[in-house]
Design a protein around this nucleic acid. Structure first.
Length: 515
RNA sequence: GGCGCCGUAGCCAAGUGGUAAGGCAGAGGUCUGCAAAACCUCUAUUCGUCGGUUCGAUUCCGACCGGCGCCUCCA
């Protein structure tokens, strides 16, 4: 089966074939850097990260380029207001953007060009467009002549007449056609400027992407991505610029656009509307894997609303996948032969279903379903092994490896959060309390600085207590650990623990009052 | 006005001209000293409404109701 992608240009799902076999040139439009990123940005970049990961999984060498728009009206406004340099503001948000997308597990692009670095290329392209009659100068401005490019508006499927009928903005009378858009803007007081053949000024918004594509990926690329809000005018204008300049069609073979994420309340999430959920805040509240599962729980062309309830539900689903891996480890330790209990076959089926789903226009909800199905099979067999019903374990590793590998393609690490040093005081207190209550089982308070060491001491003490049927103290320790976010589970082979990650607390223990 | 999208169980959300994935939540059971986890069973006779095409439609067509996007800020 081959990968099929929805191409905005044709409005159809088409078989994917890059121009050069085995290699994919992919360009994704980056953010304007006048402010912090929100969870909608996180969704878009996580999605294209998954596209890239899947292409690589499929054996393609992917060159992924993403721009950073550091010359733009809002950044300039902000710079003027704060008496700062535009590039300085942009770089601050670039650093923050990369920190946050790193935290989300989004792999870095090969190049992150800034508009401010592209001026020579931009000037070169504008000159070329003017020479070919696609652009004209009015005073210090240069406009693109839309009537010179017959394919204009093919991407968004409109006509110039329709566009003008719905125009909301008074056209600039100096333009030949109301739809002509600016390639170069003459300097205005207080704005950063670069010199050009048309005098000092700055580039228009769209031209940077044409320049970056040309410089980093070539005249024709395979995949061009971005949010669906960029279809018009940004991508439409990019096509017009690039194709008119190079005279090579198509500029991009496949146009991928993700639907926009909706805010908890209202319909549009935008920084300038102030109704966004900042990516940083979301990352403080949820694990990256949990956010990913939420992002991928709907198809990328379906608008998804960010609500705490939905994200929490996704985060709990994540626990299910992780528990399956933990159960495998539990079972492996108890299995003693090489007989395969059918999990190799289950792993094969899961991979097949996963690929089928991903091939079908990156159907991540179905791909996730394949992961959950495999997790369920793994649990069934692990359960049987732990209970001693069956003893085969060969398939367990295969299944666990497959689960990890396919999750990785979705950018899910399936790693449990680690212990942090801020747990130390709490753990010391629990141990001290347990020691006071039952010195036979629990050692003197240790001066250990390693949280894991303290947890081990507590769990060993609990085991001693449980063997003596001192359930009250054992259960109290479990409850106290739960209060600290350490969930203890008594498995047949002994206790295991994990850091609570989804905000769920263990149910209150009836064996003793909490103090 | 033009172009386009959506309406599936308590919540999130896939999907197909042949009788509804998955996750979360919920109920019962198994296991366990208990809890948790896991497993088993159950939870939409039904896919906004009304018509049409069809042997058969949630899936195609039409109308209507409701919600939304784009039409030069925007992932």
């Amino acid at each position: 089966m081959a990968l099929r992608l929805h191409n905005t240009f044709t409005k159809r799902v088409e078989e994917f074939a890059p121009s050069e076999p085995g290699r994919v040139r992919m360009y994704v439009c980056g953010p304007n850097l006048y402010g912090p990123a929100h969870v909608g940005h996180g969704f878009s970049y996580a999605f294209f990260d998954v596209v890239r990961r899947y292409l690589e999984y499929r054996g393609y060498a992917v060159t992924h380029v993403q721009n950073f728009t550091d010359i733009e009206d809002r950044i300039i406004e902000r710079a003027v207001r704060e008496h700062r340099n535009t590039v300085e503001i942009a770089e601050e948000y670039i650093a923050r953007f990369l920190r946050e997308t790193d935290a989300l597990g989004i792999r870095r692009a090969a190049h992150y060009p800034r508009a401010s670095e592209m001026i020579p290329k931009i000037v070169e392209i504008i000159q070329g467009l003017m020479a070919r009659g696609h652009a004209y100068r009015v005073d210090g401005d240069v406009y693109y002549r839309v009537t010179s490019f017959p394919r204009y508006l093919r991407l968004s499927g409109r006509s110039l007449d329709e566009m003008q009928a719905g125009a909301r903005i008074e056209p600039d009378p100096r333009k030949e056609h109301p739809m002509d858009f600016v390639l170069w803007k003459a300097a205005r007081p207080g704005e950063p400027t670069w010199s050009s053949p048309w005098g000092p000024g700055r580039p228009g918004w769209h031209i940077e992407c044409s320049a970056m594509n040309l410089q980093y990926l070539g005249e024709q690329i395979d995949i061009h991505g971005g949010g669906e809000d960029l279809i018009f005018p940004h991508h439409e204008n990019e096509i017009a610029q690039s194709e008119a300049y190079t005279a090579k069609l198509p500029f991009a073979r496949y146009w991928l656009h993700n639907a926009l994420m909706k805010p908890p309340v209202g319909d549009e999430m935008h920084r300038h509307l102030g109704n966004f959920v900042a990516l940083r805040d979301a990352l403080a509240q949820y694990e990256a894997d949990g956010m990913r599962i939420f992002y991928l729980s709907a198809h990328y062309r379906t608008p998804l609303r960010w609500t705490d309830e939905a994200v929490r539900a996704a985060a709990r689903g994540l626990e299910r996948l992780r528990t399956a891996l933990a159960n495998v480890e539990e079972a492996i330790a108890r299995a003693d032969d090489r007989e395969d209990a059918g999990l190799s076959e289950a792993a094969r089926r899961a991979r097949e279903a996963f690929e089928r789903a991903m091939d079908d226009d990156v159907n991540t909800p179905q791909a996730l379903a394949a992961l959950f199905a495999l997790a369920a099979e793994v649990n069934r067999v692990a359960d049987a092994v732990i209970k001693g019903t069956i003893s085969g374990r060969a398939g367990l590793w295969v299944a666990a490896d497959t689960l990890r590998e396919l999750a990785q393609v979705l950018g899910l690490s399936l790693r449990r959060p680690g212990l942090t040093a801020d747990l130390l005081p709490g753990l010391h207190a629990v141990l001290a309390e347990a020691h006071r209550e039952a010195a036979d089982f629990f050692p003197d308070p240790l001066d250990a600085q390693d949280p894991e060491h303290l947890i081990r001491a507590l769990l060993e003490g609990r085991q001693r207590a449980r063997e003596r049927r001192a359930y009250a103290v054992a259960d109290r320790v479990r409850t106290r650990l739960g209060d600290l976010g350490i969930l203890v589970e008594d498995m047949p082979a002994g206790p295991r623990w994990r850091v609570a990650s989804d905000g769920r607390q263990p149910t209150a223990d009836a064996s003793g009052p909490r103090t």
